[in-house]
Computed example of a mutant assay.
Amino acid sequence: MQLLDHVSIGVPDIQLARLFYDAIMTALGACKVYDRPTALGYGERCNGSDTESTFLAVYLDPAEVGTSKRHWCFKAISREHVDAFFHAGLSAGGQSEGDPGLRPHYHRDYYAAFLIDPAGNRVEAVCHAAPSESKFS
């Protein structure tokens, strides 16, 4: 069961958010489904024939984010996608909150990276799978 249907993240500067979220969502393989002057959308909304999808909305909100424990974690299909998320986010104005790597205190194969977006929101990408076997080993 997928617990979340959709998540909304508020940001005070949609232009900075556009650069950052376009970069990290592309790195994770998520499609951009809309781009409006005050909102961005990624992923796919659920419908009657697709009840498994997840959707992210990033919207203009002039309120200050400030220091908080709010945290959004995105699934990555591979460790390489986690790495790409991290480097794309840094290149697009994000700050490191934790380099890509294993977090064995969660479980043996928990591979994640953490970023702070330009507004101060904390985001993570995680791959739960063990590393795939190399074709060349």
Rank of each mutant, 00 (worst) to 15 (best):
T38R: 03
D99W: 03
A92C: 09
A57I: 03
A125T: 04
V65P: 07
G66W: 05
L28V: 14
W72V: 13
P62I: 10
Y106W: 10
C73R: 05
D35S: 14
G29C: 13
S134I: 00
H81N: 15
L60F: 08
L115D: 02
D83V: 04
V11A: 05
C31A: 14
T67S: 13
S68D: 10
Y106I: 09
G29R: 14
V58G: 04
E80Y: 05
R108W: 02
S96M: 09
A129D: 13
R79E: 02
F74E: 09
L90N: 05
C73V: 09
F20T: 08
C31W: 01
A17S: 08
E97P: 00
S78L: 06
E133A: 13
P12S: 14
G101V: 13
R79T: 01
T26P: 01
Y111V: 00
F85G: 00
F136N: 06
D50Y: 04
T54H: 03
E124R: 10
L115P: 11
M25G: 02
E80F: 05
L60N: 01
Y21L: 06
I14T: 03
R79A: 01
A125F: 03
A113Q: 06
I14G: 08
A112H: 04
G94M: 04
T54C: 12
A63M: 14
V11N: 03
R45H: 06
C46F: 01
F20M: 09
G94V: 14
M1Q: 11
V123I: 15
A113H: 03
H107T: 09
P37D: 10
A63S: 15
A57P: 01
Y21W: 07
A17I: 03
A30R: 05
S78M: 06
I116N: 12
L60Q: 12
G48F: 12
R70P: 11
R103I: 13
E133C: 08
G10Y: 03
H128N: 15
P62E: 15
A39V: 07
G94C: 06
T67R: 12
Q2A: 14
C73E: 14
E80D: 15
S96I: 15
A27T: 00
S78R: 07
Y21C: 03
F55L: 11
Q95H: 11
G101Q: 10
P12L: 13
L56T: 04
G43P: 11
S91W: 00
I116L: 14
D5A: 14
L3C: 03
I116V: 13
H81A: 15
E133R: 11
T54Q: 12
L90E: 07
T38H: 02
E80M: 07
I9N: 11
V126M: 11
L4Q: 10
L4R: 06
R103F: 13
N47S: 15
S49W: 08
D50C: 06
H105E: 15
D117I: 12
Q2Y: 07
A129S: 09
Y110P: 10
L4V: 06
L3Y: 10
L102T: 03
V123E: 04
S96C: 11
V33F: 04
R18H: 02
F86G: 05
L56Q: 02
G29A: 13
A129N: 08
V7N: 02
N47R: 05
D13F: 09
I24N: 00
E64G: 10
R70Y: 11
Y42A: 08
S53L: 02
I9Y: 09
